[in-house]
Design a binder for these strands. Structure first.
Length: 560
RNA sequence: UACCCCGUGGUGUAAUGGUAACACCUCAGUUUUUGGUACUGAUGUUCCUGGUUCGAAUCCGGGCGGGGUAGCCA
């Protein structure tokens, strides 16, 4: 090891590990990410994944280090193979690799069982015949101690016999549990003789019908960690009160490894909900279109929305790790996304709300192929040819008949640049009988091909356009936050806080021809509008808006 | 009103007894063939109260505030 590392500027977890390495308590670092396969992974899990796998990668530069993926599959009633598969795919997509170290708590059932016989032999566990209701009633309350079970003083022989018969299936579901014998008067409720095993005749995705009893999390987790030689077992704050029980388990059975549990604050994000229960509810009740709905904070939803693993990892790094409850501004996530997409997304022109424009001084039938830069941030992205003709579509909102101050897009008599094309002046506004603008006519400056004024005159506004004859049609889905307020559910049922405009689907958008070949999974910028991403599930040409561009004009316009 | 944890700009995170910093947000400006990007600048912070100390965001006491915990869920 290097001389004592600088602990300054590091989060509290890294400081703990630094100290453990410096003191010689550990010579390696082993972490784990332990999801329960009862739902899809979300951005909050990404924080834990980046932390645990990131720690292994970081410390791996100096000492042996690794991170395990372990499924915490001890409750077959809620867990499914579909979730197991999705979780593995999501962790990989995020960019992490567990190598050989894929584990399941269910792999340890036999060892966990043997440890329980050991506990029984030490008079540290007993079989309780009370019902769940009776146990609840005798647990006491936050301010009152619990009451000992009448079965608490059974002999080790009797407990052993009963426990073996529990396993053998001699008793009905719920009729008995194995309990730790700790202290029914402990101020920590978790220590009031917690259940260790319960009888449950439910088929398990991995062990099938082999087990009729299943171990509890509080018992399974510390011992699974110990069996895998985990050095630092990182979990979220709500397990803080469980730590004494965690330590009790590893201290009282024959394992030689004593992992340390460290708790950190889970991620909360503005304008979204993060609990699996709520996300499952949104899916089941049809408020969204499945776990991978682009509005969901799930990794599969973010992926379908167009988020990149790089942006998510960057975000997880920037939010830091601490113990205080906090709510991160979703704008930071969006910032990380834009920063990444700005570097990599090729630019294209797309008109979402088309307004026809006729260029009067353009020879009928003439097509001019213009060179357009693919990405000003990346010269290697090259250029492409876009067709320019006398009949174009521009964005309806880029024209105003009576523009406000500071408006520098199109208006009657005003000159704008058609991106990569010509300088254009609107000379006539044609309306339908209802007074709605139907079409614009105008003239281009033939000497301004490419967009440069021949005499150097300043043209402030640049707008995007497509040639009507060449445009391809597409559906574009405009997403906003799923919830309308920063902290959904804070004041009332979270469903009431759902944003009714979280999805606006626009059909018959007019796109430049290159977009017909857009590939799902690769981002593209629609110039002046935002970053988009061809939907991976829809047939036909459908784009999801990943995130808008920053829009200072929208802000300016909002002021008045 | 039992036990545990946590209080630093609007938000998130640093500063580990020695000038309170970084990022996001907000605002103002420069550059710009995207009202994008980039760049510059500005506003704004240690919950309160005693104590220890030459010196406290940091250590100690007392308050106050927030969160967690009473599944045979994880």
């Amino acid at each position: 090891m290097e001389p004592t590392p600088l602990t300054s500027g590091r989060d509290f977890i890294r400081q703990i590990i630094d100290a453990d390495l410096a003191s010689g308590k550990h010579v390696n670092v082993v972490t784990r990410f332990p999801p329960e396969p009862n739902g899809y992974l979300h951005i909050g899990h990404a924080k834990a994944i980046c932390l645990n796998f990131g720690l292994a990668a970081e410390y791996g530069l100096k000492v042996p280090a690794r991170c395990h993926l372990r499924f915490d599959d001890t409750n077959p009633e809620k867990e499914e193979q579909e979730y197991i598969d999705a979780i593995e795919a999501d962790v990989r997509w995020l960019g992490f690799d567990w190598g050989e170290h894929l584990y399941h708590a269910s792999d340890y059932f036999q060892q966990l069982y043997d440890f329980s016989e050991e506990l029984i032999g030490k008079d540290l566990a007993y079989v309780d015949d009370q019902s769940a209701e009776e146990i609840r009633a005798t647990r006491g309350s936050l301010t009152e101690p619990g009451v000992n079970s009448p079965w608490r003083t059974r002999s080790a022989e009797e407990n052993l016999d009963l426990f073996r018969r529990m396993r053998a299936g001699e008793f009905p579901d719920g009729s008995r549990v194995l309990r730790a014998r700790i202290d029914m008067a402990s101020p920590n409720l978790n220590l009031r003789d917690p259940a260790l095993w319960r009888i449950r005749r439910a088929p398990h995705p991995r062990t099938g019908e082999a087990w009729l009893i299943y171990p509890m999390y509080d018992y399974t987790h510390p011992l699974s960690d110990a069996l895998e030689s985990i050095t630092h077992s990182i979990c979220t704050l709500e397990f803080e009160n469980h730590r004494p029980l965690y330590d009790w388990a590893v201290d009282n059975v024959s394992v030689d490894c004593k992992p340390r549990q460290i708790e950190f604050a889970r991620l909360n994000l503005t304008y979204t909900v993060m609990s699996k229960r709520k996300l499952l509810f949104l899916v089941k009740e049809g408020h969204v279109d499945g776990w991978d709905d682009p509005r969901m904070p799930t990794l599969s939803g973010l992926r379908r929305r167009g988020y990149t693993p790089e942006a998510i990892r960057d975000f997880c790094e920037r939010i830091g790790v601490a113990k205080r409850d906090s709510v991160v501004d979703v704008q930071l996530l969006e910032h990380c996304l834009r920063e990444d997409l700005n570097r990599r997304a090729p630019r294209r022109m797309a008109v979402l709300d088309p307004l026809p424009v006729t260029i009067e001084n353009w020879e009928a039938g003439r097509v001019d192929w213009l060179e357009a830069v693919n990405n000003p941030e990346d010269e290697s992205a090259g250029t492409r040819q876009v067709p320019f003709t006398g009949e174009l579509f521009i964005e309806r909102e880029d024209f105003m008949e009576d523009p406000p101050k500071k408006w520098f897009r199109l208006s009657p008599g005003a000159e704008v640049r058609l991106r990569w094309g010509y300088l254009f002046t609107c000379t006539e506004v044609i309306k339908d009988s209802a007074g709605r603008v139907e079409r614009l006519c105008g003239r281009i400056d033939p000497a301004s091909r490419g967009g440069n004024a021949p005499d150097g005159r300043k043209v402030k506004g640049t707008i995007h356009w497509v040639s009507a004859a060449h445009a391809v049609e597409a559906e574009v889905r405009l997403y906003e936050h799923l919830f309308a307020i920063e902290k959904p559910g804070a004041e009332r049922d979270f469903l009431l806080d759902i944003n009714p405009d979280s999805l606006r689907s626009v059909s018959q958008c007019q796109l430049e021809p290159a977009l017909a070949e857009a590939v799902p999974g690769t981002p593209v910028q629609f110039e002046r509008l935002g970053y988009f991403h061809r939907d991976s599930r829809a047939t036909g040409l459908v784009f999801n808006r990943t995130v808008t561009l920053r829009d200072t004009w929208a802000k300016e316009a909002q002021k008045s």
